[in-house]
């Protein structure tokens, strides 16, 4: 049973992730009073890429050709171990905890950066250096967030954290939780690639993710794009199901509730996407080197969460 649920979760993520990004793009365009693409545009794009021929640069090694498949597989693996439509571990759940999941994320992005270096394209190398210089600052924040969640729950297991958040109102309404959620929101916005510098776009100073896959074409490009959609979808799910809105996630094995929760979950994600679209259209973009101020804020929130924990627990 758990095995079939795992497959259902996998299909859920694979199929819906381009739709989520399509909806986000649609909202973004509508909010700037433009017609906007269809919400299914990302599917058309992927389909188009799959039909095209693949070309590799002459200077690249064989590694370059394998990276899209490897990174896509890693993202697929991650969908199997995180609470997306269930709050109890599925077949592969016990394989890794939060830190392990973070490592897999890191491995995938490292592979992509390496392939960008391997392509010997100047723009790709620029993208690799930019994304690693941002990553250097975001990853400690993510690590601190995990540590604080571990302090709250006594474990790094995302399922346990979800259950604690669902059941314990004292933790859910605590300042520690609020600050962690805020910090994770800040990091999530960076990882989703919308704000503060719009790293998904093609403009000169903002493009980071697009530069990394500059030399790919055809099926490899499609897989990389799809992989990044899956990554964003998973991160949004983690943010909603673990950090901010852990309610309704089915804690017991019941097919009907899981079936309904699939719709509720996507509804939650649409709300989150609307919020992102509003933030995108209201807040002005940052210059590339101002992003560190922004990360510093996220970092300060996690440190404050730690401080609150100490102040509230050490005998008030």
């Amino acid at each position: 049973m758990l095995f079939y649920l795992s497959i259902a979760q996998l299909l859920y993520v694979i199929i819906l992730s381009p739709l989520a990004i399509g909806i986000l793009n649609f909202f973004n365009e509508r909010l700037s009073s433009r017609g906007g693409p269809s919400i299914f545009q990302e599917y058309y794009n992927l389909f188009k890429y799959f039909k095209k021929q693949s070309i590799y640069p002459e200077s690249s090694s064989i590694f370059f050709a394998y990276v899209p498949y490897m990174s896509f597989a890693m993202y697929l693996f991650l969908t199997l171990v995180l609470p997306i439509i269930t709050a109890f571990p599925l077949t592969f759940g016990p394989v890794v905890d939060f830190v392990g999941g973070g490592l897999v994320f890191g491995a995938a992005s490292t592979l992509i950066k390496l392939s960008a270096l391997d392509s010997r394209n100047n723009y790709s190398i620029l993208g690799a250096s930019r994304s690693s210089s941002i990553g250097i600052f975001t990853e400690p924040v993510i690590l601190l967030i995990f540590i604080m969640l571990g302090v709250i729950s006594g474990t790094n297991n995302p399922y346990v954290i979800n259950n604690i958040m669902q059941t314990s109102t004292s933790w859910y309404y605590s300042l520690v939780h609020l600050f962690i959620a805020l910090a994770f929101l800040f990091v999530l916005i960076i990882e989703i690639g919308q704000l503060p510098i719009e790293s998904n776009s093609l403009n000169e100073l903002g493009s980071i993710d697009t530069l990394l896959i500059h030399e790919y074409s055809g099926r490899e490009l499609a897989l990389l794009k799809w992989g990044s959609y899956i990554k964003q979808f998973i991160l949004m799910n983690v943010f909603l199901n673990v950090y901010t809105w852990p309610f309704f996630v089915p804690m017991k094995l019941s097919l009907i509730s899981i079936f309904f929760y699939m719709f509720i979950n996507f509804f939650k994600i649409i709300i989150l996407l609307i919020i992102f679209a509003f933030i995108n259209s209201m807040v002005s973009k940052y210059r590339l080197f101002k992003i560190f101020d922004y990360i510093a804020i996220a970092f300060s929130f996690t440190l404050l969460a730690m401080l609150v924990f100490y102040i509230t627990t050490s005998g008030g």
């Binding site: 560190f292 101020d293 990360i295 510093a296 970092f299 300060s300 440190l303 404050l304 401080l307």
Partner: peptide
């Protein structure tokens, strides 16, 4: 610089603890 001053003001919180 702004990011440094943000970090310093958080460290001040820890310092005061």
């Amino acid at each position: 610089s702004v990011s440094l001053s943000i970090l310093i003001s958080v460290l001040l919180a820890i310092f005061s603890y």
